[in-house]
Design a protein around this nucleic acid. Structure first.
Lengths: 217, 217
DNA sequence: TGTACATCAGTGAACGCGCGTTCACTGATGTAC
DNA sequence: TGTACATCAGTGAACGCGCGTTCACTGATGTAC
């Protein structure tokens, strides 16, 4: 597979791109983002992308092998903007301002999803489907978060705050799961009377309680 | 939309089905389940379903309007087998055998997903995509679980075990999210050294801790 | 400053595949007498 | 028990749409002298 770096895009022919070409490529990426936000992830034909970008299908193929590759480029770009949640976690949720740090963390997660909802959904669907390229991106994004969470659990276990019966990575996966899912779907919870703030607060508290072994003060 | 009951299937023409026809219909449903388990949810052409069922595309259309409707029938069937998790939750997780009840609950959830993994994934994807028919089924399935969880949280808040800052439905959604996600993906966690038992135990403990406000004994 | 040429960038139009869907028909099963 | 007829169940073959993809070409931009 031709590995594509965001800062060094290349035409399908392998030639480097001039400034005009870069702009066109950018228009195609942007058009795809827009379409993605407007309709289903499964309904993304080359023709429509090209039309939206004000160009032709033939041009599309100068820049991308197929729609998947384009989606991959978008997913990589979105993933790069993922906040460094792992660092926050390592800063620990204990002590008096632990809850405040947890809130900031959840908030960053929510915001990241708000900004890239469509493409992150696509990335996860493709990964669930088993596509190794999207799995890799997802793994690079979530992996460090899982590790950081698991480390905190282990620390809690050493310090006797958390039961040894809990499996650090299973717990980490559980926490990451609901963080991600609620971030992706927090709007739907409005129907149940939960605002974005409610979700942030609730997630932060469950997070602290699980990592610390007891509810925050 | 023609509402279809599992016990009273009807041909597209509206006629009732004889025993021979019922068998054919059943073969088509089964063939679809098999294909679903073998390949991506997005790759399910009528021709392949018919071939696998040992019949022809034309026959397919005697029984179903399109693949979506067929998937809907499968999803309804799978949903009917959902264990009554809500009842378990209302039985409470408190007291000495609360943890044991939580384990049983998580186990039932895991088993349900093991049995119907492919079609439940399809159901959730279709619901996420915004398809109202699949949303309805999903809602009928998860709704009672959410309500039961939220009620327990509220009870905990009345009894001062749980902070008022937590939003009952947000917390319920968080718990249901990770239960569902880990049930769907528990095999992938093997790579991180977590067995099915680890996952069951860990989920059960997080569940109890969140609903009770403190870790189980 | 102008001209010739090379390369870059873009595209209209067509081709063809896969697949959903339907039509006109055949064969199987049941029922009346 | 046999025959005629109605209805049920199933299908081969074709049609046509949507879409991915490519080809042969045009226009734009840069460079050499």
């Amino acid at each position: 597979m031709k590995r594509e770096r965001a800062d060094r895009p290349v035409a399908q022919s392998g030639r480097k791109l001039g400034p005009r070409a870069l702009k066109t490529r950018e228009r195609i990426l942007r058009a795809t983002s827009e379409l993605l936000a407007e309709r289903s992830v499964l309904d993304l034909p080359v023709v429509d992308i090209a039309r939206r970008a004000g160009t032709s299908p033939a041009t599309f193929y100068h820049y991308f092998k197929d729609v998947d590759e384009l989606a991959l480029a978008l997913a990589e770009r979105a993933s790069e903007e993922m906040p460094d949640v792992a660092a926050w976690i390592r800063a620990s949720m204990g002590g008096p301002d632990g809850l405040e740090r947890a809130r900031a963390l959840v908030d960053a997660f929510l915001e990241h999803w708000d900004r890239h909802h469509a493409i992150l959904t696509l990335r996860n669907m493709a990964a669930d489907r088993g596509d190794s390229r999207f799995l890799r991106i997802r793994q690079e994004n979530i992996g460090p978060v899982l590790s950081a969470l698991a480390s905190e659990i282990k620390r809690g276990q050493r310090e006797q705050r958390i039961s040894k019966e809990i499996h650090p990575f299973a717990a980490a996966a559980a926490l990451a799961s609901f963080l991600e899912r609620l971030s992706a779907h927090h709007r739907d919870l409005g129907a149940l009377g939960a605002t974005r703030e409610d979700i942030r607060e609730t997630c932060a508290r469950i997070l602290v309680q699980t990592l610390e072994g007891s509810a925050p003060a």
